[in-house]
Computed example of a mutant assay.
Amino acid sequence: MSSAETATPAAPDARAERRAKRIAKNLTAFAAQHGGSADGVVQYVGAVGTRIVVVGADGTWGDQVAPSYAVGQRAAELAGITLHADFEGELGLKVRTGAYEWKRMAGIQLGG
């Protein structure tokens, strides 16, 4: 019997779990550097994967790209990130933007 025949459909994919753990390590480090906790949202990016946007307790935000939605959710779960359904409302209000973001947004509006 091959290993493929003995695997069950519910058995976790070892490669996906390793990827989730690697991403979770980054998310955990981010949370530790920005107040000890973080909230976030997992969103499809398209063919390239999924984006995990996180907001630290201090309002600093960052993101990570995961190869799939399942890996992104698992990484956030492993990191202890509180997930939200979307980036609006409560989560959006936590974000603290700096001079770089304001300058970048103004540049986009002005065609730069």
Score class of each variant (00 low, 15 high):
Lys21Leu: 13
Gly46Met: 09
Thr97Arg: 14
His34Gln: 06
Thr50His: 08
Gly107Ile: 00
Ala20Asn: 11
Val71Pro: 01
Gly111Pro: 02
Leu27Phe: 05
Asp58Trp: 05
Gly107Trp: 08
Gln109Met: 11
Gly56Glu: 00
Ala106Met: 07
Gly107Met: 05
Thr28Pro: 03
Leu83Arg: 07
Leu78Arg: 09
Tyr44Arg: 15
Ala7Ser: 11
Ala99Gln: 14
Gly56Thr: 07
Ala76Val: 04
Gln43Trp: 00
Ala57Tyr: 03
Gly35His: 03
Val41Ser: 00
Val42Ile: 03
Arg22Ser: 13
Arg18Ala: 11
Ala76Arg: 05
Ala32His: 09
Ala7Gly: 02
Glu17Asp: 14
Ala47Arg: 15
Trp61Ala: 13
Phe87Trp: 07
Asp13Lys: 07
Ala85Val: 14
Gly72Lys: 10
Gln43Lys: 12
Thr50Cys: 10
Ser2Cys: 10
Gly80Leu: 10
Glu101Ser: 11
Arg51Gln: 10
Met1Phe: 06
Arg19Thr: 12
Gly107Cys: 03
Val95Gly: 02
Ala24Thr: 06
Asp63Trp: 13
Val54Lys: 00
Ile23Phe: 08
His84Pro: 04
Arg22Cys: 06
Ile52Leu: 10
Ala7Val: 14
Ala75Lys: 11
Ala57Ser: 13
Glu88Thr: 01
Ser3Pro: 01
Arg19Tyr: 09
Glu77Met: 10
Val42Asp: 06
Ala31Tyr: 08
Arg15His: 13
Val95Arg: 10
Gly92Val: 00
Gly62Arg: 02
Gly56Ala: 04
Asn26Gly: 09
Ala76Cys: 11
Ala106Gln: 12
Gly49Arg: 03
Pro67Val: 14
Arg96Met: 04
Ala85Asn: 11
Trp61Gly: 04
Ala47Glu: 15
Ala79Glu: 07
Gly46Ala: 05
